[in-house]
């Protein structure tokens, strides 16, 4: 199983569409996309074709959350299905995304 990422930039908004599986074997694929984020005001993760995410995949999304603080852009999750939503809710990802821009972390 693989992960493919479709990247699209419109103005200062970048969309990364994740298709397949984001896990320990594929999470390194996302890193170059995050490293090249400059002059971006909004990063949209489109999860509508994401089939599965494990803890290493959640770690990649966490890195993007921390990067959004560091590089001062807004991070948006689109197309989150019920299973992924439950995982994000359980580990506290939404809460971290909400809090990180408020606090001096």
């Amino acid at each position: 199983m693989e992960l493919t990422i479709q990247s699209k930039q419109t103005g200062s908004t970048k969309t990364l569409k994740l298709k397949g599986i984001l896990d320990i074997s594929t999470s390194s694929i996302i890193e170059p996309y995050l490293e090249e984020l400059d002059n971006v005001e909004r990063l949209i993760f489109d999860f509508s074709e994401l089939e599965f995410i494990d803890s290493t995949g959640i770690g990649s999304i966490m890195n993007a959350i921390y990067l959004s603080k560091e590089k001062n852009f807004k991070l948006i999750f689109n197309g989150v299905d019920e299973m992924t939503h439950q995982v994000f809710e359980t580990v506290g990802l939404y809460h971290i995304l909400e809090e990180i821009h408020k606090e001096d972390i």
Partner: peptide, 10 residues
């Protein structure tokens, strides 16, 4: 009961 992962926020 809510609570985020350890290592997420201080």
């Amino acid at each position: 009961v809510k609570g985020i992962m350890v290592g997420g926020l201080p």
